[in-house]
Simulated assay, not measured.
Amino acid sequence: MSSSNLQALTVLLERAEAERDEALRHLRDAQARADAAKHQQEQLSQYRQDYRQRWSQEFAQRTTVQILGCYQNFGGRLDQAIGQQSGIADFADQRLNAARDVLREREMRVASVRKLIERRRAETLRTQMRQEQRSTDEQAARAAARSSNPLTRLVA
């Protein structure tokens, strides 16, 4: 393999590695966003549970229709916020899965280019070894021909 071919494959490998590294950064960002969205959803759900428990204790003592209306209104808004956050968390998970798929593809590309370079180097090495073997065989054949030729013995 010529050095220009090897150089072209090396450039291709560098580009594939850069794309893989970018995909890895994107995956990490997606993971952070997904974790943050889940954490916020969990916090909202925990707050909703605490809110219900607190108001259940309060209602056991005394309540008015106005307070009950406020409780139900705020609880409804909390449920809505939890539902929205759940949608955000699901979307973040989808993006995380997509980022994983992209990273997997980019890693496979890097591995493929590395394998190609390895094969080309091995092919070049085999070609060089064959050429060296041919050269050695030719030299041995010439030497044998010289030693078997009676005229070459006299000259030497």
Rank of each mutant, 00 (worst) to 15 (best):
G76K: 15
L78P: 08
K38D: 05
S45W: 05
A37F: 13
Q46G: 10
S135I: 12
F91A: 10
Q57S: 07
L116W: 08
S86K: 14
R33W: 06
A34E: 05
D35C: 04
R62Q: 03
R121N: 10
D90T: 04
Q31G: 01
Q133L: 04
R120E: 07
E105L: 12
G76A: 10
Q66S: 00
S45L: 15
Y71I: 00
R119C: 07
E123Q: 08
D50E: 13
N97S: 14
V65M: 01
G83A: 15
F59L: 04
H39T: 02
G87R: 09
R33M: 14
R121F: 12
L68G: 01
A37L: 05
H39E: 11
Q133H: 01
L78E: 01
A89V: 10
D101L: 04
E58Y: 06
A36H: 14
Q133V: 12
N97K: 09
Q49M: 11
L68M: 14
L44S: 12
K115R: 06
H26P: 01
S56M: 05
A32E: 11
Q131W: 02
Q43Y: 02
G75L: 07
R126G: 06
R109Y: 09
I88T: 13
L116C: 09
R62I: 01
R126T: 14
N73A: 13
Q128A: 02
K115I: 02
Q66P: 03
D50R: 10
Y51I: 01
Q46E: 07
G83W: 14
H26G: 09
R109N: 11
E107K: 01
S56W: 13
D101I: 06
T64C: 02
R62S: 00
T127K: 02
A122N: 09
Y47S: 11
R114K: 13
T63N: 03
R119L: 05
Q57G: 12
Q61F: 00
E118W: 05
D35T: 05
A36W: 12
A98D: 06
Q46T: 06
L103H: 03
R106N: 02
R100A: 07
H26I: 08
Q131H: 02
E107V: 00
E107I: 00
Q72M: 11
S112N: 04
Y71T: 02
A99D: 03
A32V: 08
N97G: 01
I67C: 03
Q61T: 01
R54K: 11
K38M: 15
Q43P: 00
R114C: 05
V102T: 08
D35A: 15
A81D: 15
D29P: 09
Q31V: 04
L27W: 07
S45T: 13
E42Y: 04
L27S: 02
E123L: 12
A36N: 05
R109T: 07
R95K: 10
M108K: 03
D29K: 13
R62K: 13
R77S: 10
V113A: 00
A98Y: 15
N97V: 08
R109A: 06
Q43S: 10
L68T: 01
I67D: 00
V102A: 08
Q61N: 09
S56T: 13
Q40R: 14
V113D: 00
R114M: 15
D90Q: 12
A32M: 15
Q41T: 07
Q43W: 12
R48D: 14
R95G: 11
L44H: 12
Q41I: 02
Y71A: 00
A32Y: 07
G69E: 06
R134Q: 06
N97P: 00
